[in-house]
């Protein structure tokens, strides 16, 4: 049982939860995820860790209410408990000094991007962030990103904030302007697919963080398998981060609909 300490709504369907999990807070690194069970009859679902506070013994999760479990989780309030939280799982992000790094995210993918942005900056990289959303109200963590990064570019589909366009337009603008050594992308699979296509054209190494269907999250079930470079890999133990240019996104998009 893990107590919810704090809850803030970013938008109507997106909540930021601070959850008591001292051992996970201590051992997690950027890129790690946890498996969460909302209540005793709940599913095991993977959620990427957005932040952690070792002193308070808490981790931060950003959850978008889109399915049965995420709706249950978003309906909980401070003082309520999650039935189970286990982790940290997966491999941590390989953070190194590369030069200039572009971190781009969309939707709730922006939340797990934040610790990577902080890590990249700390490692001495010139760190540029591209945040994208459908409309102004759905842009999250802008202030935190501005504090952590050298530059933040905002893209909205409807042009209600920042520049009008997709995440790829923002990333391309940077690539055309200056030498980019690495791109990190986290967001909906379809977004990451197009980021990968773009950066492949410019031959910029790109890391993506995949969020597939999982059951145990520890390498036992294989529900999360994806094809990377022609080989089947397990997102939970081999990932969640992979070379975006080698991921078969079409297969992944198909498999995400397994239970729709």
């Amino acid at each position: 049982m893990n107590k919810i300490i704090e809850k803030v709504y970013f938008s109507e369907n997106v909540a930021r939860l601070v959850v008591e999990a001292p051992m996970i807070a201590k051992s997690r690194r950027p890129g790690h995820f946890v498996i969460v069970i909302a209540d005793e009859k709940g599913e095991r679902i993977p959620l990427t860790i957005a932040d952690a506070d070792t002193a308070k013994g808490t981790i931060t999760l950003v959850v978008q209410a889109i399915g049965v479990s995420t709706r249950k989780i978003c309906a909980l309030n401070p003082g309520d408990y999650l039935a189970d939280v286990v982790g940290p799982l997966g491999r941590a992000t390989d953070i190194q000094r590369r030069g200039t790094v572009v971190c781009c995210g969309g939707g709730v993918g922006v939340a797990p991007l934040l610790p990577i942005v902080k890590g990249m900056k700390e490692a001495g990289n010139r760190t540029i962030v591209v945040l994208a959303a459908r409309t102004k109200d759905l842009i999250i963590l802008e202030r935190e990103m501005r504090e952590a990064a050298d530059e933040v570019i905002i893209m909205t589909d409807d042009g209600s904030y920042g520049k009008q366009g997709l995440v790829t337009n923002g990333v391309e603008e940077v690539i055309l302007r200056e030498k980019v050594d690495e791109v990190v992308t986290i967001g909906p699979a379809i977004m990451m697919k197009f980021v990968a296509l773009l950066t492949k054209k410019y031959e910029v190494p790109t890391i993506c963080s995949l969020n597939t269907i999982m059951v145990d999250g520890t390498g036992m079930c294989g529900a999360c398998r994806v094809t990377v470079d022609g080989r089947t890999r397990f997102v939970c133990v081999d990932g969640p981060e992979f070379d975006a240019h080698k991921v078969d996104f079409d297969e992944m998009l198909m498999r995400l609909k397994a239970y729709n």
Partner: peptide, 18 residues
């Protein structure tokens, strides 16, 4: 740990599970 698969074509189709 990891379940074995046969590495044959189509094994990652929906409805093929360990």
């Amino acid at each position: 740990g990891l379940p074995r698969f046969m590495n044959i074509p189509g094994e990652n189709l929906i409805g093929v599970v360990s």
